[in-house]
């Protein structure tokens, strides 16, 4: 392993790092918005939208991101719909992440104990009040660990963007390896770069899971 080679590659990896972060950020925000909409539509049983949401969730969760991206990037242009690679990446990530976030929120809402819901009803809360004062506040905090797990998952999924040549981290490494045949160095930097992003998140996730477990079960 040569430090000189690693050093020379750092500016390129820096750009890849930024792009990975940026695409993840936009994708995650978008996923949360989509997920929230879907879970609310399902919670309030809004006719039609609710069916659309559940069909979307099933399609999105049961197909690989890679094929979703290929579809967006290669197949859609045939229909006259064309996006740049990065936009495809973001749309694909949101399409994927929206369903995971939706399930996370729904899981949280469903996790609110029956006795809580019943005591809410018992004091005469309306459906909306029940959601507003009982189900949502408790449900969102219950869904936090699932959200955090999804964040980690989605960041890792951006590595798939390499298949449509978005120059994020993985793509940068593979390009460099292709050009200079120094796999050890570039893979090393690549793993470290992901570790820098994901290890802190993973630690936070572990803490959150403990918190919620204590929170829900008392001790």
């Amino acid at each position: 392993m040569s430090w000189a080679i690693i050093q020379q590659s750092l500016p390129m990896f820096g750009k890849g790092f930024e792009l990975t972060l940026w695409l993840s950020f936009v994708g995650i925000i978008g996923s949360i918005v989509v997920g929230l909409i879907c879970s609310l539509v399902q919670y309030f049983r809004v006719p039609v939208f609710r069916q659309i949401a559940s069909v979307y969730v099933e399609i999105s969760r049961n197909t690989p991101l890679l094929i979703q991206l290929f579809f967006l990037y290669y197949a859609f242009p045939v229909l006259g719909i064309k996006f740049g690679a990065q936009l495809c990446g973001i749309i694909g990530l949101i399409f994927l992440g929206g369903s995971y976030m939706a399930e996370g929120f729904t899981g949280g809402f469903n996790g609110v104990s029956k006795s809580q819901v019943e005591s809410g009803k018992a004091i005469g809360l309306s459906r909306w009040q029940l959601a507003r004062y009982v189900v949502f506040p408790q449900g969102f905090s219950l869904s936090v660990p699932a959200m955090a797990a999804n964040v980690i998952f989605l960041i890792k999924e951006t590595s798939i963007f390499t298949v449509i040549a978005i120059p994020e981290l993985t793509n940068t490494a593979l390009d460099l390896i292709g050009m200079y045949y120094r796999s050890n160095e570039y893979l090393f930097v690549l793993v470290i770069a992901y570790a820098i992003i994901l290890v802190p998140l993973s630690i936070i996730l572990t803490l959150l899971e403990k918190r919620v477990r204590y929170g829900t079960f008392g001790n």
């Binding site: 890792k156 999924e157 590595s159 798939i160 390499t162 993985t170 490494a173 593979l174 390896i177 796999s183 050890n184 893979l187 690549l190 793993v191 992901y194 570790a195 994901l198 290890v199 993973s202």
Partner: peptide, 17 residues
């Protein structure tokens, strides 16, 4: 922590070389 794509390439390059 390491994305599966990266795992794949780690083994793909490092095992043989």
């Amino acid at each position: 922590v390491v994305p599966t794509v990266v795992l794949l390439f780690l083994f793909y390059y490092i095992l043989p070389r």
